[in-house]
Amino acid sequence: MFPYLLVLSLVVFWIVLEKKSLNRTSFWLPLITLALFAGGRSYWVGTDTANYTRNFNNKLSPESFRFNEDVEYGYQLFEYSLLHMTNNYFWLLIITSLVIVYCYLKVIKRYSVNYWLSLFLFITLGVYTFSFNGLRQGIAMALFTLAIPYLLEKRLFPYLLICAIASFFHITALFIIPFYFIVNLRVKPAYKILATFFGSLFVSRLLVSYISSTNDRYEDYAKVSEESGGFLTLGFYTVLMLLIIIASYVYKIRDKSFQQLLMFYASGVVFVIPLALLGTSASGPQRIISYFTWTLVLLLPVVLKKINNIYVYIISVFIFLAYFILTTSKFSDLSPYIINPMFEVF
C-alpha cells in the first residue's frame, strides 16, 4: 500500500508547491508521474492485467494474432499494431496509462475549482486505479470524459461521436448516450432521478440478459454474486449523492455546470441501484457506475468550497484516504504493488 500513498503524496505536494511558487496549475509532472506508476507495474498487479498482457508475455507474433469477435475491435487493433513493434507489455501499459491520465487531467484542469483536491480525489476514489483492472473500460471511460464539455454545452453531435469512439474500446460507452437527454431535459431534477430509477428497474434484467447472451465474455454478468465490495461501493456513492444534493440546497449552489454534473452523477447512481438489486457481480454491469462517479472529483471541491470549513476539509480528506486504503487493499487486488521486472535493479 505504501507505493500508492507515496505517489499520492508526491502528486499532491507538487501541485500545491507549483501553485504557491509559480502560481501555475501543474499538469505535465502529475501526468508523467501517474502514467509511469501505472505503466511500470507488473502484470501481477490487478485481477485482469495478466489477461491483457498475455499475448505480450507469450511473445505472440503479429502473424499469429487472431481478431476475436467478442472483444471490441478498437482495442484489438491497438494491441495488434503494438505487437508489430514490441513484445514488452510495458509499452501496452504505459501508452494506455498516458492516454487515460491525460484525458482526465485535461477535463479536471478545465473545470476544477480546487485542482489539488480534485487530483487527490481522482486517486483516492479509485478513478485513477480503475484501469489497473479493467483496462478496456478504463480507456473508454477516459475517452468519454472528453465528452463532458459537450454535455455541458448541449452539443449533441460531438457528444455522440466521442461515445461512439469510446465504444470501440468498451461497448458500455454507448449506454451513456441517453444520459445526455436526461441531463439536458427541461424537467425538475427530482422527476428525472425518479424516472431514471424506475426505468432502470424495468429494463435492468432485460439489459443484463441481452448483454450476457450476445457476448460470451459477459455471460457471468447475468449470474448472481455474493461479493460485498459492490454493495459497499454503491452504498458509499449513494450516501455521497444524497449529501451533495442536500448541500446544494442548503448552500444554494446555483452554478449551471455544477447542477448538470450533479444530475449526471445522480442519474447514474440511481440507474445502477436496480442492477445491484439483481445481485449481479460488482465486476460486471455495476462497473458502469464508474462512468458517472468520476465527476465527484469536480463536484466535491465545489461543495467543500461553499462550506468553507477547515475541519470539514480535514475530515473529508481522512474519509477518502481511508476509502482508498480499504478499496485498494481489499477489493481490487492492487496491493502489494509489484514493479515490472525490467525495472528491478537487484
Rank of each mutant, 00 (worst) to 15 (best):
L6Q: 04
L10W: 06
W14T: 11
K19Y: 13
F37T: 09
F37V: 06
G39R: 11
G40Q: 08
R41C: 02
S42P: 04
Y43E: 10
T47C: 01
T49P: 07
N51I: 10
P62K: 06
S64F: 13
Y80G: 04
Y80D: 01
H84D: 09
H84G: 15
L92M: 06
I94W: 07
I95Q: 00
V99G: 03
R110H: 15
W116H: 14
F122I: 02
I123P: 06
T124P: 06
V127L: 02
Y128A: 05
T129R: 10
L135Y: 03
I139F: 06
Y150M: 05
Y150V: 07
L156Y: 12
F157N: 06
P158H: 10
L160H: 00
A164R: 01
A166G: 07
T172I: 03
A173N: 09
F175M: 14
P178I: 00
L185A: 14
R186H: 12
L194Q: 00
A195C: 01
G199W: 09
G199S: 12
V203T: 13
V203F: 14
L207C: 10
V208Y: 04
E219I: 11
E219H: 12
E226W: 04
E227M: 04
E227A: 14
S228I: 15
L234P: 01
L243G: 00
L243M: 14
I246T: 07
S248A: 12
Y251S: 11
I253E: 02
Q259C: 09
M263E: 07
M263Y: 02
M263K: 03
Y265R: 00
T280Q: 04
S283A: 11
G284A: 14
I288W: 01
W294V: 01
T295A: 12
P301E: 08
V302N: 05
V302K: 15
N309Y: 03
I310S: 15
Y311V: 12
V312T: 15
V317R: 02
I319F: 11
L321S: 05
I325T: 10
S335N: 14
M342R: 07
F343I: 02
F343K: 06
